[in-house]
Design a protein around this nucleic acid. Structure first.
Length: 387
DNA sequence: AAGACTGTCAACCGCGCGACA
DNA sequence: GTGTCGCGCGGTTGACAGTCT
């Protein structure tokens, strides 16, 4: 229903745009704005459908488009946001203001997806392809299975919540409520009672940032939602379960590219670097679990599990030592310049290489990681359809 | 040198949604 | 309540360029 027939008209040109057509379109939009896309072609003297004009404008002619190679930072952003948002390219594009969704989508499909796959990461789920990873720890297979299930469930639910947020944002107009929205959102599933604004998904990260680090906070804290944070249905767990593994991975990958040039652009050929990153991962730890630190030790697990002393011990059995420490070490060095040897004293712990001693730091590092995401989100345009 | 193969990316297609009559 | 319009989104295609054999 409601299908626009505009592109079915006979006589409309398809295919590549000529410079003349570009000029016509540019000239018209500069003078009149695009107005109704459907009406534009005839007004501008173009034998194109409005849809084609809109695409040409938004993907190519728009003056604020940045073309050329993606920077390392942009790559990281894409991977992180893809982990959180999936194939919602327009949402991702709002965090890369000078890139179009089409460009990001193409870049993902032609570069990033393949690289992730090469490293054994499922580019869809952002999990290691070898699910046995999750079951290698004694007695953890059940939790892992539940977790996987929850992650899928949460992913779907996050989608719905994001939609609600988006709808409410539209209703609220382009108000300045972005920074002032409540923090109720992240508490429990089914509690999207107040889809009042775009800050709610952001609050997921804020709550995550604020209180879900069991070891660091002495248990699943109650930021925003009381004990419900540990609920298997919390949005939080979605962000953690679905997002963090890949996000952590993204950070790792990004940081493992020490060969960026001064402009922040990745040098050719990063493929080799990715390979090395993969080798690093497997060689150093012999177990890829640390790529999913959040899955192992965060509120993705039910709170009772996370709070349980025995399970916490299990969590500490997660081989989060060398890799995680190196990972977070790298992470810190990237998110704030090379600070791995600086102020917070992280290096001393990292240098120890001890798993147990690094546990608290591990949570801190995860927290830092999500701080980076949070910063990313906070610095994103306020009209982001998602955040 | 030439054909085959692969990678890239602009553009198209189909669908869903909100606004509106 | 229903149908139409207009738009935006994500998936896919196909032309072109570069690389390989």
């Amino acid at each position: 229903m409601g299908r626009s027939p505009c592109c079915d008209k006979i006589g409309l040109k398809k295919g590549p745009w000529t410079p003349e057509e570009d000029n016509k379109l540019l000239a018209y939009i500069e003078e009149h704005g695009h107005g109704s896309w459907r009406a534009l072609p005839s007004k501008a003297g173009l034998q194109r459908c409005g849809k084609s004009c809109r695409l040409r404008w938004t993907n190519y002619l728009r003056p604020d488009i940045k073309r050329g190679k993606f920077s390392l930072q942009e790559e990281q952003t894409i991977i992180q946001l893809h982990a959180l948002l999936g194939n919602r390219w327009s949402a991702i594009a709002t965090h890369l203001p000078k890139r179009t969704d089409n460009e990001i989508k193409n870049y993902w499909n032609t570069h990033l997806k393949k690289r992730l796959a090469k490293m054994g990461i499922d580019p869809v789920t952002h999990k290691p392809k070898n699910d046995a990873i999750l079951t290698t720890n004694d007695g953890e297979s059940k939790n892992a299975a539940n977790l996987s299930h929850m992650a899928q469930w949460e992913s779907a639910r996050l989608e719905a919540e994001a939609r609600l947020v988006r709808q409410s944002k539209l209703r609220a107009g382009s108000s300045n409520s972005f920074q002032t929205q409540n923090t109720e959102f992240a508490s429990t599933s089914g509690q999207v009672q107040k889809p009042v604004g775009p800050a709610q998904c952001l609050d997921v990260l804020k709550v995550w940032n604020g209180g879900v680090w069991p070891a660091a906070s002495g248990g699943v804290s109650a930021a925003g939602g009381g004990g419900d944070l540990g609920s298997p249905t919390s949005t939080l767990s979605s962000a953690a379960g679905v997002g963090e593994s890949s996000a952590a991975f993204a950070e790792f990958v990004g940081n493992s590219f020490g060969s960026c040039d001064d402009s922040g652009m990745m040098k050719e050929e990063s493929e080799e670097e990715w390979k090395r990153a993969a080798e690093y991962r497997s060689d150093e730890i012999g177990n890829p679990i640390p790529f999913m630190p959040g899955l192992q030790e965060t509120s993705s697990f039910p709170s009772d599990w996370a709070a349980s002393e025995s399970n916490r011990q299990n969590a500490e059995h997660v081989p989060s030592g060398n890799f995680v420490e190196k990972f977070t070490d790298l992470l810190l060095s990237t998110s704030s310049g090379d600070r791995r040897f600086s102020d917070d004293g992280g290096e001393s712990d990292n240098g120890s290489g001890g798993v147990g001693g690094g546990s608290g730091d591990y949570y801190e590092d995860n927290k830092n990681y999500w701080n980076s995401i949070l910063n990313l989100v906070n610095s994103s345009p306020s009209d982001s359809p998602i955040f």
